[in-house]
């Protein structure tokens, strides 16, 4: 029962959260929600042991597809978001043919090159991608009402609730995938690829599957972003954001499902809210960089290792209490 109560409390806190924040902080909250999906989908990819640098560009593929589908073909916005994810997954399948010939460091750089080529194509071709200035005036999500709450998508709070529900649903699917036999096979592909192969697992197919699923959800997060900010350009999906995703995942730790999400939330709050409030505007990257270095030096297993230690200690404490009763 207490576990259920904790979830209710978390949910209530998440619903109440935007009401205590300033307008700009509410906007950061929306971006944070979208980035949580981005980094959680990235973890699915890292399950198979590959660290891609194309993930943010794939997110951009979702954003561009959804934006173009609504603008050129008049597709209804929520449908276009879903299609954005589908297109991103398809592009990932295409990319997997050259990329999965490589491993390790070569895959890292190869994926960077592939992503950068896509990004530069957006920049080079003004029709239909809008060139360096990108696409402007993307249709916003149409307002709607669910009886007790009126969604008005010019308000960040409304979009936060909308994106929050979608992201929560996607996280649930990602979590189910990870716990399914397919997810266990992903683990096997990472840690025991020779053994997995010898046991009849098609390693290549599973790597492609993980890449496609992760990319699909990244595409949805991109579409969520596009229809919120209303304008996208190639520079919004450059290596800088990718570096942030990478550090969220590594600083948070990738051994657990919540690790990368924890890293994303903690580092974003630290960077966007704490350091801004302290008035360290110019020194922000410096402090952020120092925190990254310190956390990797002193917390090599990520922030999740703190959580694991705390929960373990609690379990250890409660165990002897229970033993006399037994």
């Amino acid at each position: 029962m207490p576990k259920f109560l904790i979830w209710v409390a978390v949910l209530a806190a998440l619903i109440a959260l935007p009401h205590g924040l300033s307008f700009s902080q509410q906007e950061i909250l929306v971006f944070l929600t979208i980035n949580v999906l981005l980094v959680a989908s990235y973890r699915l990819l890292t399950l198979t042991g590959e660290w891609s640098l194309a993930h943010v560009v794939i997110m951009g593929v979702g954003a561009y597809s959804s934006a173009l589908l609504t603008k050129k073909l008049g597709v209804y916005v929520p449908v276009s978001m879903l299609l954005g994810g589908v297109v991103a997954a398809l592009i990932a399948v295409l990319l997997s043919f050259p990329l999965f010939r490589m491993k390790g460091f070569y895959f890292l750089i190869g994926s960077f090159a592939a992503g950068e080529i896509i990004r530069l194509l957006w920049k080079r071709f003004r029709d239909p991608f809008g060139g360096a200035k990108g696409i402007k005036g993307i249709d916003p999500m149409p307002d709607f009402s669910i009886g007790f709450y009126q969604f008005d998508f010019f308000e960040p709070t409304s979009y936060y609730y909308f994106a929050g529900v979608i992201v929560a649903f996607c996280l649930w699917i990602l979590w189910r995938i990870e716990k399914s036999p397919v997810g266990l096979t992903f683990h096997a592909v990472h840690w025991q690829d020779k053994l997995a192969q010898a046991s009849g697992v098609n390693v290549r197919a599973y790597r492609t599957l993980a890449f496609a699923i992760a990319s699909g959800f990244a595409g949805i997060s991109g579409a969520l972003l596009a229809h919120y900010v209303g304008t996208i350009n190639p520079n919004a999906f450059d290596i800088d954001l990718m570096v942030f995703v990478l550090t969220w995942a590594i600083v948070g730790g990738t051994a657990t499902f919540y690790g990368p999400i924890l890293g994303c939330v903690v580092l974003t709050v630290l960077n966007e809210i704490v350091l801004r409030e302290l008035g360290l505007e110019q020194m922000r990257p410096l402090v952020y960089g120092a925190i990254m270095i310190l956390s990797i030096l002193f917390l090599p297993n990520g922030l999740e290792s703190i959580v694991q230690k705390l929960t373990k200690r609690r379990a250890a404490k409660s165990a002897p209490e229970r033993s006399p009763a037994e």
């Binding site: 990478l246 590594i250 110019q282 020194m283 990257p285 410096l286 990254m292 270095i293």
Partner: peptide
């Protein structure tokens, strides 16, 4: 890799 990214950000900020 992450540490060198952190160092990069520090150098840029400086």
């Amino acid at each position: 890799l992450v540490a060198s990214i952190g160092f990069l950000m520090i150098l840029q900020a400086l």
